[in-house]
Design a binder for these strands. Structure first.
Lengths: 186, 186, 186, 186
DNA sequence: ATTTAAACGAGACGGTACGTCACGTCTTAGT
DNA sequence: ACTAAGACGTGACGTACCGTCTCGTTTAAAT
């Protein structure tokens, strides 16, 4: 959490930006979307509300900025087999979601997207981008691209379904899903 | 929309209950969760706020009551084959969600469930109940119950994923998903 | 406080009337006008709200009924001298107001009279009636009636002023007031 | 009545404060305490409720603020004689109360003081302050201070008694009261 | 002896106001 | 020019009480 910061003159203060994004992310991680208000972020970041509104036009855009900040961390290793990659992809999603603020943040973005068209568009765009990467990876093992896209979509949808209902599959469930998907397109 | 209703004595007035639930459902259908406030429901239903709070302790519980009111309509025909039942189940979900207030209502419930533990529990319970029915139906065609449960879960998750991102699959996509699922457990 | 009472047929139940008036008086005595709501009276008297509204058309009229019930107790002895009667009258007012629910009730009636024309009229009428009695008593000692009325009015106004500001004069102050009044009209 | 006002920065907007106090005072003058609600004041002043609650913690404190705003106007001329000053003081009270919002405001404060300890304390404090001034003035004509205080208290109590019961004395009645008081302490 | 009619406790009804919270906008004073 | 601070109007939150209404029960009075 940030200490009191003075202005650094007629230029954007990167410390403020970071303090705001950190506060927003931490609030989402700790209290979910319910605790995520501009006022709470400003209090926690020791920032003025207009400073937040200057850079992010509303609550939704700040949420999306936090969400965008997660992307860099979303990498997972290749295994060499299709089965290993699919299983690893799914398993990694849940690890990522539970070990970082990512889970609450994504839940919040999805919730926000049900109310806010901009959040919806941003989330869908990001999903498509990610799915292109994922299916490209799956296709490296000789799978047709359309089938790779299909199982990537199904896998991610399944993972969302678990996340949104507060569940997390065990290894056996992940293995079964993987098997169904690979046999299904085999 | 309801006219002003008097009390009918020391008992719940079904006309008021209906007017409130109708108003709530219509607001969700027209404006989504953002337009769904107790004040707005009271105005539209020509009801007093305390009348709403008397029967539904908060916004979430009223939302869940609207959601529960959808159950009866959620039926779809049997086709005689596993492939037909799976495909029909998925197709029916999207028809149901787009032709009735059900789509916006379910989107709202899922969004609410990300914030509210009660909504989360209610949604998960309802989902499990529905999935038991669905997988039982799939199992009538000779499929093992655990496999039937798995593909029911996957199918519903896929449908939610489409709904929550504002998409709707065409018949070919539904057919492909159906094929993957059935071959996957075959 | 009353037990649950049944109807005694097509006639007013005196037990209910008493229970309601007692509850109203006690609430005024204990919590003042702030705690005096029809709902609170009904709860305390174990009466239905319509039973109250059947006999007293609104909150003000029930307050006035409690006030009217005080009249009988408002008697004080004659002393044989003008000075004794004036002093005794004033002293008696404060004893009456502090030893019974009368103080809070009269404070409440005066407060209510600032908002409600009916309460104002009722209070003024009662005041005039009382003042006629008081000044008649003072006049028995040879004082002209108009002078007796004047000092009765002044004495009561002074007493109200003390009551409404939460004060109570000691004996010396009462004696001084008495002296001023009697010498003033002497 | 005020137009919509913007914030003028991180400081109190005097225009809003004035609009709110004016609206409160006018509501009291026109409708008395019954019409005096925070919601009504906010509507009339075109102010937000939180703006009112930011500066005055509740209805009572806003009422007392209106009451305090009357002080400056409560001045009356000296006449050179005790009789003239006493009579002028009493007469002035009624002129002040009938020609300005002061009458309804004071009636409201007294009513509120019967319910609210804070209002009671504030009213009593203001009364004592005023009475010190008044009795000091009376004492300039050679009257002992304790006697001056006594007749000031009696005079004000009499005036309150008239105000609270919706009466107003004519000149002869004021003259008679003055005579009684002066002869009483003579 | 039976029926009628009104009073009873209970509590739901549509409203209004309460006092609180967060929204997104605006201006100040300082760096 | 950018900062922290915080006031502004708006509007929803959940609660209390208003005065009205109907329910089903009870019982005295009228048949």
């Amino acid at each position: 959490m940030a200490q009191a910061r003075k202005s650094i003159g007629a230029q954007r203060n990167p410390a403020s930006e970071k303090a705001i994004l950190d506060a927003a992310r931490d609030l989402l991680a700790e209290q979910g979307l319910a605790g995520f208000s501009i006022e709470a972020v400003a209090r926690r970041a020791r920032a003025g509300k207009p400073t937040i509104y200057r850079w992010w036009p509303d609550r939704t855009r700040l949420l999306l900025a936090v969400y965008a900040g997660l992307k860099d961390e979303m990498v997972h290793p290749e295994t060499g087999t299709l089965e290993g990659d699919v299983r690893g992809f799914i398993a990694h999603l849940f690890e990522f979601w539970s070990g970082t603020p990512a889970g609450p943040v994504i839940r919040s973005v999805i919730a926000e997207a049900q109310t806010n068209a901009e959040a919806s568009a941003a989330f869908l765009a990001f999903h498509r981008e990610r799915n292109a990467e994922t299916s490209a990876r799956f296709a490296r093992h000789g799978l047709a691209l359309d089938k790779a896209q299909a199982i990537a979509e199904i896998a991610v949808s399944y993972a969302w379904g678990q996340l949104l209902t507060g569940r997390r599959p065990n290894d056996a469930q992940i293995a079964r899903l993987t098997e169904i998907l690979i046999r299904g397109v085999g």
